[in-house]
Design a protein around this nucleic acid. Structure first.
Lengths: 184, 184, 184, 184
DNA sequence: ACCTTCGGGACTCCCCGTTTCT
DNA sequence: AGAAACGGGGAGTCCCGAAGGT
């Protein structure tokens, strides 16, 4: 299938970046993991690792957005539950090792790579916007929906880091329980 | 002063790790930043980069702990405020570029480095324990203090990541406001 | 026009080889300079870069040969003048940057590429033969024509190198003046 | 012996550049030829290949200069003979394969590397200056010494190229014979 | 005995010349 | 004819032992 090889590389990159961060993810690992030949990277990603990383960020952002958008929640609680459980599965499946590739990109992106950091920003923002919208639609007061969405994303990302240290989803569950208290 | 050069290296490492993550922080940068000669690293840190990174984590953990311990808060609000403002200064001073070196270590620490990840765990735990204690002392119900402490640390770490993307302390402020609502 | 694209590639290759040598001239540059699509290389030059380089050498050798043959010189002086001025134009137009593509091929041709080095040899030889012939026809003693032809080509090629370093045609002019003294 | 390894690398680089040109000389070859480990290059030549190439040029320039300076010539003929025979040995020993490393550098030095091209210029100039001086001292008219020196260096460099194509010193000998005719 | 220059490989990313299949 | 894919090196540099200088 044409174009499949490129997708496999992006998926591998996203997966590895979620576990090791961006810098620690070498192209060799991506190549090995995706079973791609060495020269393909320059072919598919003329700008090299940067381009691959950006595509990985885009992939994750899009994936989460679609997953969350597909949830037919009828209450604020369900909105948050769906968002958290999406990540919980990742954490459980990897014993906490896997986190968020976007955080990985944000953390060790060189300060001068403005494009990447901008992409990280709009990715997070897109999640926040969606959560805010869904919270409003399910009955949260409009002025409450936005801050709740922000703290949800923040607490989630932080919890993923704590889960790495704990080798398990404990912190995520604790956070989820508290977030619920913010709902009206 | 003997030992001074070693300290400078640890401080440089902590600072750089907060901005770039652990893997992206090369020993050369640490050396350049701290003005140390190349060979000194093996002398002061026989175990190499690993040992340096661990010491940097310890330094940050200790520094935050002491700062927070020094706060004579009389309410849960003040406890949280003190903790957040401690980080807010870092964010503001660096336009969001600097975050938490421990998160940097957690994010791209190799999965097999159990010592480092353990150190990260107990560092976070020490903060949580202190916050829980301070929250209890300032009037929070005992069963509420622990989850609030957890979500505080999680939301803080997540907010630091969002602040990197936003080049400013906005996310941290939004998070702080919401955390207050969890207090009784 | 069929064959036009192929010619453009050979011309680009010759031009680039004159400025950078053979190894430093990448196919990508040739492609970019000639505006050819990437895949065309192997269609037009089944043997790849080697074949392209050889054609570039042939092109230059032929071009010089024809130019020099077209000169209706009536004295040895005019023969040499015509030959030198042919190169002088190239040097002046490029501020010394452009030299001789054949020298570029000779210099960094791999020792095992016997075909290329043979081509270089017969190319130089063809110039020497022509000069010798023209010198004889314009009155030089037969036994003098051959060595003068040799030293003329040698001094020219050397002067082109010196011109690169000087960013101008100065060395070429100095050499031209001395060569005249060899004539009877 | 300290510093010996660095010298060996420069010597290897000079030798390889004389045979293949600069671009075609890979650091790996230099490393293999000199028996040095890969990491040494960064240690001895912080600026990488450029610095190594420049040192190689300097080495050759210096070596020729000293050799020529050591000749106690009593006639212009002897001056030229000494200079030519210096190169003739190199050509014969390598069957024409080895030429002049400085020409190799000049030929495929990137147009933007001003330092290297400047070094090439002053290297050639230093030879020319010395030849001019020796020619004057051995009785050539002062106004003749300079142009003869120029054409000598040019013809030598060109002859080295022709020798590569001929796999032998023939062209060099032809050139040497003609150069003698320029002497008074 | 401190420490620091030097030497040693193992990667990193990049990009090149090539081939294959459409 | 041309787009996609393929490996192999290219330079760079990173982190680390070991032998020398003070």
């Amino acid at each position: 299938v044409p174009g499949d090889s490129r997708d496999r590389m992006v998926r591998s990159a996203a997966s590895l970046m979620a576990s090791r961060g961006m810098t620690a993810t070498s192209l060799s690992e991506v190549l090995a993991d995706s079973g791609s030949p060495r020269g393909s990277i320059y072919h598919h990603f003329p700008d090299g690792k940067r381009e691959l990383a950006k595509d990985a960020v885009r992939l994750v952002a899009q994936h989460v957005l679609e997953s969350q958008r597909a949830c037919a929640a009828t209450s604020g609680q369900e909105v948050l539950d769906h968002f958290i459980s999406l990540w919980r599965r990742v954490v459980v499946a990897s014993n906490g090792a896997a986190g968020c590739a976007i955080a990985g990109a944000a953390l060790d992106c060189p300060p001068d790579d403005v494009e990447l950091i901008a992409l990280v920003r709009i990715s997070f923002q897109s999640w926040i916007d969606l959560l805010q919208e869904q919270l409003t639609e399910t009955g949260q007061p409009p002025e409450r929906a936005e801050p709740i969405a922000w703290v949800t994303v923040a607490a989630l990302e932080g919890a993923l880091i704590l889960c790495r240290a704990q080798h398990g989803p404990g912190p995520l569950d604790k956070v989820a329980a508290e977030l619920s208290r913010l709902l009206t």
